[in-house]
């Protein structure tokens, strides 16, 4: 019962464009509330997909369902081509990693111990690789400086980066991050999204729930705009981010303009309309 099961085999490296997570005709009901209705989304290798939308649109719920945390009420969810419920927990852990919205810890483990927990799915088959993955993830998120401090003694932003380092150390080909930038300062917001883009360019599939449309426009390869439990638009940010759509979805006038120097898409709330 304890160690009889064979150790799960890591998946082969995905090819660019492989669909690593997919929802079709997805509906989720939580209690009496229909949180998602008829959602179709695919997450492909080599792509950074941003889920945006107003509060309560169902972004986090969609992420939970794609991560196999939450069973759909109807519709199908496939992870690495197989129905989400067909995978065991250890198999899933080698295929997708998830960053929760808030990180908590019951006991005072140190930062390095927390990051090392991300290596658990690999069952310590290769300790040198574990060390390298942990050190690399800590350096990338700039938490090496307080590796020996207990997690409980960190500020909110530092905790968020440590949690991200743990998720990176897991080295799953599918990353799912729920508001990774919420607690971070300007510099670290950019850092985190750069990291996400690097992972996508290296061939992983990355899904990020974001509130900052500017960040989504700058870094995402594809954006899915959610509204009231459905997908209002899905495509590259410069196609999807139109003033009409965003103003309508957020019920707030929005300006979309090209950056004067680079021409990149800028999204700003139109502050002239009210109070001027």
């Amino acid at each position: 019962m304890i160690r009889l099961r064979r150790r799960p085999v890591p998946p082969p490296a995905p090819q660019p464009g492989d669909v690593l997570a997919e929802a079709a005709g997805l509906s989720v009901r939580l209690g009496a509330r229909e949180v998602l209705t008829g959602v179709d989304v695919a997450v492909r290798a080599g792509e950074l997909l941003a889920l945006v939308g107003p509060n309560g649109a169902g972004k986090s719920t969609l992420l939970s369902v794609l991560a196999a945390d939450l069973p759909p009420t109807s519709g199908t969810v496939r992870i690495h081509g197989r129905p989400a419920s067909a995978w065991s927990a250890p198999e899933l852990a080698l295929r997708r990693s998830v960053l929760p919205q808030s990180a908590s810890l019951s006991f005072p483990f140190t930062v390095e111990e927390v990051v090392r927990m991300g290596r658990a799915p690999w069952a310590s088959a290769r300790p040198e690789e574990d060390d390298a993955a942990v050190a690399g993830a800590m350096a990338a998120t700039e938490v090496t400086g307080f590796a020996a401090r207990p997690f409980s003694a960190l500020s909110g932003g530092e905790r968020a980066r440590v949690a991200l380092a743990r998720v990176l150390a897991q080295q799953a080909p599918l990353l799912m991050l729920d508001e990774p930038t919420a607690a971070l300062d300007l510099r670290h917001q950019e850092l985190v999204l750069r990291l996400c883009r690097e992972r996508a360019r290296a061939g992983d599939a990355v899904v990020v729930v974001l509130h900052d449309l500017g960040l989504a426009a700058a870094y995402a390869t594809r954006v899915a705009v959610l509204r009231a439990g459905g997908v209002a638009a899905d495509g590259p940010p410069d196609e999807v981010f139109s003033e009409r759509l965003l103003s309508e979805v957020y019920e707030q006038p929005v300006e979309v303009l090209p950056h004067p120097r680079t021409g990149a898409v800028l999204v700003l709330p139109d502050r002239d309309v009210r109070g001027g």
Partner: peptide, 8 residues
């Protein structure tokens, strides 16, 4: 949930 994400 995080424990489950790590294969527990």
């Amino acid at each position: 949930r995080p424990a489950r994400h790590l294969g527990v």
